[in-house]
Amino acid sequence: AEIMKKTDFDKVASEYTKIGTISTTGEMSPLDAREDLIKKADEKGADVVVLTSGQTENKIHGTADIYKKK
């Protein structure tokens, strides 16, 4: 799966169907969080990951919607 910015995804959204939401939390780098989200998306058969939230304090927390091409 590839990560797309919401603004970029909005241009092609009609080509995809939302298949779920994924999240990651833990003591990790932003890059590790990104890789974890991609891994989870791949496991669910998603083609595209669109980040919906991200937070960093002591731990990273990120959520994303996942989509499959129609």
Rank of each mutant, 00 (worst) to 15 (best):
D8W: 03
V49I: 14
E57W: 11
K68F: 05
A1D: 02
E43F: 07
T52N: 12
I66P: 01
K39M: 07
I60A: 11
Q55R: 09
M28R: 07
Q55C: 14
T17M: 11
E15Q: 14
G45C: 10
E27S: 11
K18A: 06
I60H: 10
T7L: 10
K39A: 07
N58C: 12
A64L: 06
I22Y: 01
T21Q: 11
Y67Q: 01
S14P: 05
K6F: 07
A1W: 04
K5G: 09
L31K: 14
T17K: 08
G62N: 10
T24M: 08
Q55K: 10
V50R: 00
R34M: 15
D65A: 04
E15I: 06
V49R: 00
T52D: 09
M4C: 05
T25G: 12
I3V: 07
L37D: 00
I3G: 00
L51V: 08
F9E: 01
F9H: 01
T7P: 08
T24L: 11
L51A: 04
D42T: 15
T25R: 09
H61R: 11
Y67L: 01
K6T: 05
V50L: 03
G62H: 15
G62A: 15
S53N: 10
T7R: 10
T63K: 09
L51Y: 07
K40T: 09
L37R: 01
K6Q: 14
T52R: 14
T24D: 03
E27D: 09
L51E: 03
T52Y: 08
L37K: 01
N58H: 12
E2A: 12
R34H: 08
F9Q: 01
T52P: 09
L51W: 10
A33Y: 09
D42M: 14
Y16C: 01
D10G: 05
K68R: 11
K39G: 04
E27Y: 13
K5P: 09
S23C: 14
S53C: 14
D32S: 09
K5I: 13
K69C: 06
K70Y: 04
K18Y: 15
T21L: 04
V12Y: 05
L31H: 13
H61Q: 12
K44A: 15
I60V: 14
G54A: 13
V12D: 03
A33W: 14
E27H: 12
Y67R: 00
V48N: 02
G20Q: 01
T52H: 12
I38M: 07
A41S: 00
H61V: 15
D10E: 12
V50H: 03
S14C: 15
K5V: 12
K39S: 08
A46R: 00
V12N: 02
G26T: 09
D32Q: 14
K44C: 15
E15T: 07
E2W: 10
S53T: 13
I22H: 01
V50E: 00
K6W: 08
S53L: 14
T17G: 03
A1H: 02
V49L: 14
E43C: 11
S14F: 10
I38E: 03
S14G: 10
H61Y: 15
D8T: 04
I60R: 10
K18R: 08
K5H: 13
A46L: 01
L37M: 06
S29D: 10
L51G: 02
K69H: 08
A41V: 00
K68Y: 04
K11F: 06
H61C: 14
S29Q: 07
T52L: 10
R34N: 07
K18T: 04
F9W: 03
S53K: 08
T21H: 08
I22N: 01
I22P: 00
G62L: 15
A64S: 03
S23R: 09
S14E: 10
K68T: 06
S23Y: 13
D42P: 00
K70S: 07
K69Q: 04
D65L: 05
T52Q: 10
K40P: 01
K5Q: 13
S23G: 05
K68I: 12
K40A: 05
T63F: 10
T52V: 08
K69V: 05
E2H: 14
V50D: 02
L31S: 14
A41M: 00
I19W: 03
D42F: 11
A1R: 01
D10L: 07
M4E: 02
M4K: 03
I38S: 03
E43T: 06
V12K: 04
G62R: 15
N58F: 11
K11H: 06
K40R: 09
T25F: 11
K18V: 03
D10C: 12
P30S: 13
G26E: 11
Y67S: 02
F9R: 02
S29K: 08
I38L: 14
K39D: 04
K69P: 02
I60Q: 13
H61A: 11
A33H: 09
T56Q: 10
D47A: 05
D65Y: 07
D42G: 13
A41Q: 01
G45I: 02
R34L: 14
A33G: 05
K44F: 14
Y16Q: 01
V49Q: 00
E15P: 00
K69I: 05
K11C: 08
M4N: 01
A1E: 00
P30T: 11
E35L: 15
I19L: 10
K69N: 04
D36N: 08
M28G: 06
L51F: 09
K6D: 09
G54D: 14
D47P: 01
Q55E: 14
D32P: 04
K39T: 04
D10P: 02
I38R: 08
K70L: 09
V50C: 02
E35F: 10
M28Q: 07
Q55T: 14
S14W: 12
K59G: 13
G45P: 00
A13Y: 06
D10A: 08
K39Y: 04
A13G: 04
Y16F: 07
R34C: 14
S29R: 06
D47Y: 04
S29N: 09
N58E: 13
Y67P: 01
A13T: 04
E57L: 12
E35Q: 13
M28N: 08
I3Q: 01
V49N: 02
G20Y: 02
A46E: 03
K18M: 09
L31I: 10
I38Q: 05
K39C: 07
R34K: 07
L51R: 03
Y67V: 00
S23I: 09
E43A: 13
D8I: 04
T21N: 08
L37I: 05
K59T: 13
T7N: 09
K44E: 07
M28V: 06
S23K: 09
E43P: 01
P30G: 11
G26Q: 11
S53Q: 11
D65T: 08
F9C: 03
E27A: 13
K5T: 15
I38V: 08
T25Q: 11
A33C: 10
K6H: 07
I66H: 00
A46P: 00
E2N: 09
D36R: 05
M4G: 01
Y67G: 00
D32N: 09
I38Y: 03
N58I: 08
L51N: 03
P30D: 14
A13W: 06
E15N: 13
P30I: 11
I22R: 00
I19F: 05
K5M: 14
G62S: 13
T63Y: 09
D8E: 09
Q55Y: 15
D8L: 05
D36S: 09
D65E: 09
E35P: 03
K5L: 15
D36P: 02
T17N: 08
G54C: 15
I66W: 00
D10T: 07
D32F: 08
F9P: 01
I66V: 04
K68A: 06
D65C: 09
D10S: 06
